[in-house]
């Protein structure tokens, strides 16, 4: 099975390992992520203003391009798959909006005409975690595990955009389980903790770092206190904030210990026997933990 995969911007810049491990894993699981030949930025955040059509054009342009791509792929369905949770949420919301509002879709399609694009409104947007859960299945993943992640105590950090708003959620928005089940499938231990969806501060890192640091302190200390030795996430912005701001807090002497941040696909890659070599996206060095557990 192949999927039309929309990478978004960050998977090409500071979340390269997320993409690399996801694509490798997707081949092993026969749920292959095939990159769309042409794509644009989705705008990151969906507009909540009811009268702003302009900010809904970019996501629809992606949906229409994915439809073209789906026609070229063999053994696929009407799905566009994302890895970044912000892309996922934005595309899902706008997809639902234009499905409900034909007039808006028509207006946006007029804008797309000059590129010979047209969105039919028939695609579904899925996050790769949904594909793993609903189409591959955790049993299948268990069967493919070559190296159990013994000794990894994982706190799953969903952040906001995998669970909010209702139009975009990939799981129950208050008690999600998809990342925990995946953790168990890989042979790691699940850490139960209350901060799984406490916002990391998001884009405030650009000009209101204090707000972000407050959140990162709460989240990472909360994970460590409950015995976690790793945090997993699906969002390049969550990952960046959790990772880089811990280093900042440590330099300031506010925290002593740091906790490594991984994309869920990195842990999958290790468990499925793919050799991980590149850790350059990381701020907190994850190698000491992985070495001590014999995982690299």
């Amino acid at each position: 099975m192949k999927y039309s995969y929309f990478p978004g911007c960050n998977l090409k810049t500071n979340a390269k390992e997320y993409e690399h491990t996801a694509v490798e894993v997707s081949k092993i699981l026969d749920a292959e992520l095939v990159e769309m030949p042409v794509f644009n930025c989705c705008g990151t955040v969906h507009s909540m203003a009811s009268d702003n059509t302009m900010r809904r054009i970019a996501p629809v342009r992606i949906l229409s391009r994915s439809e073209e791509h789906q026609k070229e792929l063999e053994d696929t369905n009407n799905t566009v798959v994302t890895l970044c949770s912000m892309c996922s949420s934005t595309l899902k919301v706008v997809n639902e909006e234009v499905k409900e509002d034909e007039e808006m879709l028509q207006k946006i399609n007029w804008q797309l005409e000059r590129d010979n694009l047209k969105y039919s409104g028939h695609s579904e947007v899925k996050h790769y975690l949904e594909i793993l859960r609903d189409e591959v299945g955790f049993e299948e993943i268990v069967k493919k595990v070559k190296k159990q992640l013994k000794g990894m105590k994982v706190a799953s950090y969903y952040g906001c955009m995998l669970l909010h708003p209702d139009k975009a959620k990939i799981d129950d928005s208050e008690t999600p389980t998809v990342m925990e089940t995946l953790t168990l499938a890989l042979g790691a231990e699940v850490v139960d903790w209350p901060y799984f969806k406490t916002c990391c501060g998001s884009y405030h890192v650009v000009d209101k770092e204090d707000i972000v640091n407050n959140q990162i302190l709460k989240i990472t200390e909360g994970a460590k206190k409950r015995g976690a030795n790793a945090i997993i996430t699906a969002c390049p912005l969550c990952a960046y904030n959790l990772d880089s701001q811990q280093v900042f807090l440590q330099k300031k002497g506010i925290i002593k210990e740091t906790i490594p941040i991984f994309y869920f696909t990195q842990l999958m890659a290790i468990a499925l026997g793919i050799k991980l070599e590149n850790f350059e996206d990381h701020h907190v060095d994850p190698k000491p933990l992985l070495k001590s557990l014999g995982l690299i």
Binding site: G43, V45, R55, C84, S202
Partner: peptide, 27 residues
């Protein structure tokens, strides 16, 4: 609300695109 031209230097270079786009879209 945010002066985009003032987001410069080392930090701006390392910031994820989605942080910048998100911030500029909101501000």
């Amino acid at each position: 609300r945010i002066e985009r031209m003032k987001v410069t230097g080392e930090k701006a270079k390392n910031l994820p695109n989605i942080a910048l786009v998100g911030s500029f879209r909101k501000n």
